[in-house]
Nucleic acid binder design. Structure first.
Lengths: 243, 243
DNA sequence: TCAACGCCTTAACATTTGTTAAGGGCGCAA
DNA sequence: TTGCGCCCTTAACAAATGTTAAGGCGTTGA
């Protein structure tokens, strides 16, 4: 079966290893309903014990936690080809909410189907596992950037990461990629105030590194952006090798 | 085979699900050499492509990244029962170093053995996967604490997390747990300067929440420590359920 | 067409945290 | 036993980032 809904997922996995036709079919058979969420709505809430995981196939989503002050911390952005909550397959409860940043389309994977996949397809299981390991690697880079880089470097790092991730799933066009979020959402991801995010974006623009109209980011100087962000793509594990 | 080296690992997994005797034996058979590292030495380096993973069975280790300024960011602390680099099983290259914080003992698991386990034991595979998902959940909490909590709350959160993790593997004694690290290492984990870490510890002491002699942390007021740290143990997934 | 609203931008000022520097205590090694 | 070194502690000052507030611009809906 050829499920066009899985295009971005296959592409993301194919870049890291080879998926057999059987494996692709198994994934397609594990897929369930297509569901839409409109921008701003919650795709899952903290404390949920979901019985399915959601593969994003269009739009952008964010995982977030709230703290007592009412502030929000975004811990991950997701684009087409990403599972937003594959970890919910094995974790008993979600420790965060997931919110649709733009209008979003997902394909649901019932956990019973995922369990069945893991019972019959060890190699495919390792690739799904890998998927969650990449999330973890990105978390670690965010920690490093948040803990030890300046606001300017941190933001540059995030733009580098997103460009490569978008490019991986054919969502980049030249040196541009869709980044249709508000400065407030970006602040929530960087752990900064909106005012300081604004200052920092101005600075990246002034340096001629990027432009961003609120919808699309264009990178004008990839080399210098990487330098400013101290960006090393190793953590994205973009090389093909047997897993 | 009954491998006492795996005591803490079994305990950590048993708390979340049930391991069969076959599964325990499979893990024991996958285990290789025992290796020791002395405090301060590197257990693996950034960029390594290891052919085995290391299960910590004694002492404390830290994953860390260095930035250009020479500063270090610790992204995880590990205690007995934790794999320090199980993600290295599927990720082509390590994007961080691992350093022995104290004298450390590990059991090596050659990746070929782990692959064999995943080919024959789907449920055990899911438990190993779960192991790495817990790392990810902890990363997310660190992101939230680093991005949106004060230094005081962040530190309180870390102490809450470590108490529960130590307790899970029978390393806590009453309300005390081993925490044999320097303030500089703690600063590297919290993303703070050593001076500010010192100020913050003084404050936690002054509030009567903890004491710490550099080796052992004792929690004097668990309720208030959790409140100050806005700590909710959900993310540690401490409930037993089939995975 | 116009009004309302959301978002971006900027300014002035506040606060937290970082930096530099210096002294002290404790343990380990000669 | 003594000296050295590592680590903790504190102080004074500096810098990065947060807060509050206000104005503008563009999009959307009545």
């Amino acid at each position: 079966m050829d499920d066009h809904r899985l295009f971005h997922l296959f592409r993301r996995l194919d870049i890291r290893d080879t998926l057999s036709a059987d494996e692709k079919q198994a994934l397609a058979e594990a897929a369930g309903n297509t569901v839409q969420y409109s921008a701003g709505s919650d795709m899952s809430s903290e404390g949920d014990s979901p019985d399915r995981s959601q593969l994003l196939i269009g739009g952008m989503a964010a995982r977030y936690n709230r703290v007592e002050s009412g502030d929000r911390q975004i811990t991950a952005f997701h684009i087409a080809g990403d599972f937003v909550d594959l970890h919910g397959f094995l974790l008993a409860r979600l420790d965060h909410g997931v919110s649709a940043v733009t209008d979003v389309t997902v394909v649901e994977f019932p956990h019973v189907n995922l369990t069945a996949v893991t019972e019959r397809f060890p190699h495919l299981t390792r690739l799904l596992w890998l998927s969650t390991l990449l999330d973890g690697a990105i978390h670690r880079q965010w920690l490093v950037a948040m803990g030890r880089l300046s606001a300017l470097s941190h933001m540059a790092h995030l733009f580098c990461e997103h460009y490569l991730r978008a490019d991986t799933v054919a969502l980049a066009a030249g040196m541009s990629f869709p980044f249709n979020i508000t400065q407030e959402q970006l602040a929530d991801a960087l752990g900064l105030s909106t005012v300081h995010v604004n200052r920092t974006i101005q600075e990246l623009r002034r340096l001629g590194l990027i432009s961003w109209d609120g919808r699309t980011v264009t990178i004008h100087d990839w080399e210098r952006l990487q330098q400013v962000g101290q960006f090393d793509p190793t953590f994205l594990d973009l090389t093909r090798s047997p897993r």
